[in-house]
Design a protein around this nucleic acid. Structure first.
Length: 709
RNA sequence: GGACUUGUAGCUCAGUUGGUUAGAGCGCAGCAUUGACAUUGCUGAGGUCACAGGUUCGAAUCCUGUCAGGUCCACCA
């Protein structure tokens, strides 16, 4: 063995051997009980970030259970990531001076498809470089035809069950990305704005009613002015007619509970097409919805020529100026307000009326809540179950339509003759089931990516290999970052239970975020993103893996620590040199032979040796228990402290001075056991040492956790 | 407004059902060693465990409150 461990000579070579020998497949333990994890599918076209490197936790679980003899299956996959990918692709187009609007739907889709196919391999090889023992023979992509088929059948079933419906409501619409979003994709941001007072003339009088608004440009879509029912100032005006300034359209003055008489002027304009609250007010008071005055391209429409074709921001300025000219503008005061922004492009979202597909969530949520309350699904750490319940208990219906081209197209057809919607999972319907018309047009929208990913556990297992679903579903563990508990985990629970009548996973294990060395969230815009692969190059995959697990309790965020990475690199070197010490002594004609803990208890005659046999025996228990309890940092900490500061510093130093045939066999046996205990965390170096020393099996990966060999 | 989470050594963090003298890595000081160790070993300094109460034989740990950071949810136009 070389004097120092060099990971660059080891890792790729070993991974290749593992993969070629089929060690990642559950079939290597054909008689074992099933243990399964579905990898949260990374975005197919993007390189991995540190969140993905945290999947090391899954590899620890898989490798540990594989060594315990279970039939372990870890299914890799890739996500088409609709909005994300189209966003990235459009940015590329923009660099070439193009936009999505320059292409027809099919061409654009094909371009993105090619782009994603080109990039897919990169992400997959990065998962390999991290040493993840994924069964690549079962690799799935969210756009595989068999997956799409399942997604379609779920949609059709939901439609038939009345859980999917089409409704014309206000949606969160991004006029830059050209699509609507669900409530989860809205980012609320505090901002400084202005509250404008605007005078609305009262019909047939010279009086005004003054409303306060942050959005003067939407007044063209007003359908009423409202006041609080118990506001004495306006009592006489309720029931009268006001005139919308600049266009002199007549609207009623109404009273509604929604109004806070202390706020602003106590009078509010009602614009149902451009404000969520106003929409509800209109429904409640049976008011008309009025006209849409902001288009889907972000430009004003239907303003009787006053500000038509101006973008919202310009329109606001222009409207205020025109109001001022006419003497209809009152005070303008600064106002702290909340802007609802697009999570992706950070522009302000417009509430706009649009017909979309919705999933009725309440019945689904009920069962998902029950699954956790009954303990059928366990969340680790448990404190996150509150977030889960909070989301599901207050859930609103889910808008699953996206106007992205990149995505799974919704299998719904509109009858242009009778306005009926046909939903068919297996190909276009020949004719309308209501009126027999053949004039059917498919919805151009695609599914929210999370709609397909909500089906991932059963969709993958139903399409990997014959018998997988029966054997491995429900999966044992779903491990992911806590940041997508609501986006993904809760939705998988709901849709999984709906489709399979079983929970999709028995345990949810949530890890924290990896922040930059200063503890700040890594983000491209801040420019503080560290590529995990560079650290793998520098420190080795084992050191990176161990550093991510060591010293951080499950579910807690961690700051990336270079000193810790360096410490773990040194730890691997320490391990290497214990191996080297053994190898060197072996050349002094000492026999290498490995015994199990039980055998060693018989074999060890002197008291010191017996004590160390017992201590290693205890460590086996501690590490096993901590992995069983998802307390990975305890396991890692115990291993680090014992191997270095007990085994190497004390035991090896002691044996050194009294080495003989028997003590050497004990030393070597104990070391072999330590290598195995460490293997789930540091797979490459433990394999390399294991194979450098004789009397071992062909791979530590497939060796037994408790029995030696 | 509601919820969650964090506050422990100079820095980054562990601290498991409350239980001797509160730990690790890095950093710092001193000594030793070229050995299995591109080093390592030994010794040491460094902590009012955010603050204030309370429960207890005993609190970093449990309870209440305060302060500070972070995150999420819901929000008055």
């Amino acid at each position: 063995m070389d004097k120092a461990y060099d990971h660059t000579l080891v890792e790729d070579k070993i991974y290749k051997t593992w993969e070629e020998n089929g060690y990642f497949k559950p079939e290597i333990n054909p008689d074992g009980a099933p243990y399964s994890i579905i990898l949260p599918p990374p975005n197919a076209n993007a390189p991995l970030h540190f969140g993905h490197a945290m999947y090391v936790i899954e590899d620890v679980l898989i490798r540990y259970h594989r060594m315990k003899g279970l039939a372990t299956l870890w299914v890799p996959g890739a996500d088409h990531a609709g909005t994300e990918t189209q966003f990235v692709f459009e940015k590329k187009l923009k660099e070439q001076g193009k936009s999505r609007l320059d292409y027809d739907r099919d061409t654009l889709f094909q371009m993105i498809w090619d782009y994603v196919q080109e990039n897919r391999g990169g992400m997959e090889n990065q998962l390999r470089r991290l040493g993840f023992s994924l069964d690549w023979s079962r690799l799935k992509f969210t756009m595989d035809p068999d997956i799409v088929k399942i997604v379609y059948s779920t949609f059709e079933k939901m439609f038939d069950d009345g859980l999917v419906y089409r409704a014309n409501r206000l949606v969160n619409y991004c006029t830059f990305d050209g699509t609507s979003f669900s409530d989860l994709e809205v980012v609320n941001e505090d901002a400084q704005g202005s509250l404008y007072e605007i005078k609305y003339p009262i019909k047939n009088t010279s009086d005004f009613i003054t409303v306060a608004t942050t959005r003067p440009e939407t007044l063209f879509g007003d359908v009423a002015v409202m006041v609080s029912p118990d506001d004495s100032r306006y009592k006489d005006l309720v029931g009268k007619t006001a005139m919308i300034p600049l266009i002199d359209r007549e609207i009623p003055i109404i009273a509604d509970e929604h109004v806070d008489k202390e706020f602003g002027t106590g009078a509010v304009k009602v614009t149902p097409n451009h404000d969520f609250n106003d929409y509800e007010v209109a429904v409640r008071n049976k008011l008309p919805m009025g006209i849409q005055v902001i288009g889907f391209d972000g430009k004003m429409i239907n303003t009787d020529g006053v500000v038509d074709d101006l973008y919202v921001k310009q329109a606001r300025k222009a409207t205020v100026e025109k109001l001022e000219e006419k003497g209809l503008l009152g005070n303008v005061v600064d106002r702290q307000m909340v802007l609802r922004k697009c999570y992706k492009c950070k522009n302000v979202l417009e509430p706009l009326p649009k017909e979309q597909w919705y999933v009725k969530m309440e019945p689904l949520a009920k069962k998902a809540i029950e699954a956790v309350k009954s303990g059928e699904i366990k969340i680790h750490p448990q404190s996150f179950d509150k977030v889960y319940f909070q989301f599901l208990e207050n859930i609103r219906d889910w808008n699953i339509s996206r106007q992205n081209v990149w995505g799974i197209r919704i299998p719904a057809w509109f009858c242009e003759n009778c306005s009926n919607w046909e939903v068919k999972s297996e190909g276009a319907p020949e004719k309308c089931s209501k009126c027999d018309s053949k004039n059917l047009v498919q919805d151009i929208d695609t599914f929210d990516t999370w709609f397909s990913s909500s089906q991932w556990p059963f969709a993958t297992l139903q399409t990997t290999k014959e018998g997988d679903y029966e054997k491995f579903y429900p999966t044992t563990v779903m491990e992911t970052g806590y940041d997508i508990l609501r986006w993904w985990v809760a939705r998988m629970a709901m849709v999984g239970i709906y489709r399979t009548e079983k929970v999709p996973f028995k345990n949810v294990v949530l890890h924290g975020l990896v922040n930059d060395p200063l503890g700040k969230k890594m983000s491209k815009s801040k420019g503080n993103v560290v590529n995990p692969m560079e650290l793998v190059d520098q420190y080795g995959a084992d050191a990176v893996r161990f550093a991510l697990v060591y010293g951080t309790a499950l579910g807690n965020d961690q700051a990336l620590s270079y000193p810790k990475l360096e410490a773990m690199r040194k730890f691997s070197n320490k391990l290497w040199n214990i191996g080297r010490f053994i190898e060197m002594n072996q050349t002094k004609n000492l026999k290498l032979k490995t015994l199990s803990i039980e055998e060693l208890k018989e074999f060890a005659k002197n008291e010191t040796d017996r004590e160390w046999v017992n201590r290693v025996g205890e460590l086996v228990e501690v590490v096993s228990k901590n992995i069983d309890d998802y307390q990975f940092h305890f396991a890692a900490d115990s291993l680090y402290e014992f191997i270095w500061h007990q085994f190497a510093d004390i035991y090896v130093e002691d044996v050194k001075n009294r080495i003989d045939e028997n003590s050497f066999i004990i030393l070597y046996s104990l070391f072999s056991i330590l290598l195995k205990l460490l293997h789930p965390f540091m797979p490459f170096i433990t394999e390399e040492i294991y194979q450098k020393l004789p009397q071992h099996g062909e791979s530590i990966m497939t060796s037994s956790w408790l029995n030696n060999g």
